[in-house]
Design a protein around this nucleic acid. Structure first.
Lengths: 257, 257
DNA sequence: GCAAAAGTGTTTTACTTACACCCATGA
DNA sequence: TCATGGGTGTAAGTAAAACACTTTTGC
């Protein structure tokens, strides 16, 4: 049980170097094979799952802390990350009892006392390409796994509500903002992009209208290549025009800084 | 200088009974006479202005803390309050130097040290009827005043950016959600409501299209009365149908609980 | 050659915007 | 009676939704 020491050290680290009362929680949506998934962690010595989270260092920007924590959990740096709500109900601890959940770790009383109690948590959602992620548990958890969006179990804290709201916000955002950069390979086909949208929205879309709308954003460059090897007619390859893409995001972005 | 003692006591109160590292800031929009205004506070012994704020008690829900703080600053209980973003840049303290600003208050070194340093701040915006508000400064400020939205000076902290984002969010929200409850008297006319919208959006709207759109929401009951006393044709009076209004809010609300 | 996916435009519909006339009221 | 604001409906324009045929490719 070497990890006990590590956890106790981490808790002291929290107390010393991080903002108290503030935490970050992540709804990391993974896209793969026409399935929308969420990355969950299993709490040590229990069968209970929760969202990955993080904390903010003194002198660290909130957003920077979010990117840092996310990197730790997924191995990914440049990804689509969006603040969506801040959760501050006292009762969000409903499904989490410090004694019950932490007790099994056999920590010292000091460590238990110093473990963050009631936090206000800033919720971010992220979109990543499933395959690029290396799920990595943190010290409090011993498993990190993708879950199908419609098979999420009852989670610790208020994390079920967080997922629901994150998905709702993401879907809304999709209606007025482009998405896909860092989520698809550099070169991709229009059907690839459409499948991404359909997966997130949970509904099918008309091919022709979809293409019209996306091309209307004027953020894609069509390449002269086609994707070969498929069993059918070879579709064109597209690439995001980074400048135009960034500009489109700015023009309509809800949350800045 | 009796207030010095009070402030020192308040700072201790903060340290003891409130979450550290978390604060709340309010962009309180006031509507009056076709003008959109924001409530600002002037920091004691300076000519610098800032947004009203609050802190969260241990065991108090974030939203409850927001309503409580707002009540303290405006005297109003039931009002339209909406979380819009959480600000966590370290640099948001650009225009605030603890030494400079607090120094003039002649506080003890202990109090200065205990005064909250770097916070993550949850931003809420509120809509209130100008005339119903009793602006009340807090202990750190000695003036509480309405400012015209387009005459806001350079504020302390990152508060100018907060106002900008709050207004942007409010305007966006207006396009898919009804607004007006608690902002207009119980009975009001269609031109009253239109003026409210025009004030917030900063643009004029077509009378007929506006009426069509609003009535299309199906949240108003037209009364048999008309508003008399005006210099012209007596307009009909309307009343919000609270049930339908709440339902309309829920159906499209971005942020819940 | 056939099944399955991809490329491409037009029609229809719904929604949004623009616009005009008559009526009531107080000065 | 006149100036001003309020009540009401329709036509035009624009954006979204529905829809069909042809081409390519591997089997």
């Amino acid at each position: 049980m070497e990890y006990k020491k590590q956890i106790e050290r981490l808790i002291i680290d929290f107390k010393t170097n991080y903002l108290s009362s503030v935490s970050i929680d992540f709804v990391i949506f993974g896209f793969h094979d026409g399935q929308l998934k969420v990355l969950l962690l299993r709490w040590k010595e229990t069968d209970k799952w929760c969202l990955p989270g993080g904390r903010v260092r003194h002198n660290e920007n909130l957003e920077a802390a979010a990117y840092r924590s996310l990197q730790e959990r997924t191995g990914l740096g440049e990804i689509f990350l969006q603040q969506f709500h801040t959760f501050g109900d006292v009762m969000r601890y409903t499904h989490f009892s410090k004694e019950e959940t932490m007790g099994k770790l056999g920590l010292s009383q000091d460590a238990l006392n110093d473990f963050p109690g009631r936090d206000v948590s800033v919720g971010y959602y992220a979109l990543v390409e499933f395959a690029r992620v290396t799920p990595t548990p943190d010290l409090f958890t011993d498993e990190c796994q993708w879950w199908d969006i419609d098979q999420i179990p009852l989670l610790l804290f208020d994390h079920n509500a967080m997922i629901t709201l994150a998905l709702k916000t993401l879907r809304r955002q999709l209606s007025y903002q482009p998405i896909g950069y860092n989520l698809l390979p550099e070169k991709f086909t229009m059907p690839d992009l459409q499948q991404l949208y359909e997966t997130i929205l949970g509904q099918t879309l008309d091919r022709r209208n979809f293409q019209k709308r996306i091309l209307g954003y004027d953020i894609l460059d069509r390449l002269d290549e086609r994707k070969t090897g498929g069993a059918h007619k070879a579709p064109y390859l597209y690439r995001f025009n980074k400048e135009k893409y960034e500009k489109a995001l700015e023009d309509e972005v809800l949350f800045v800084g």
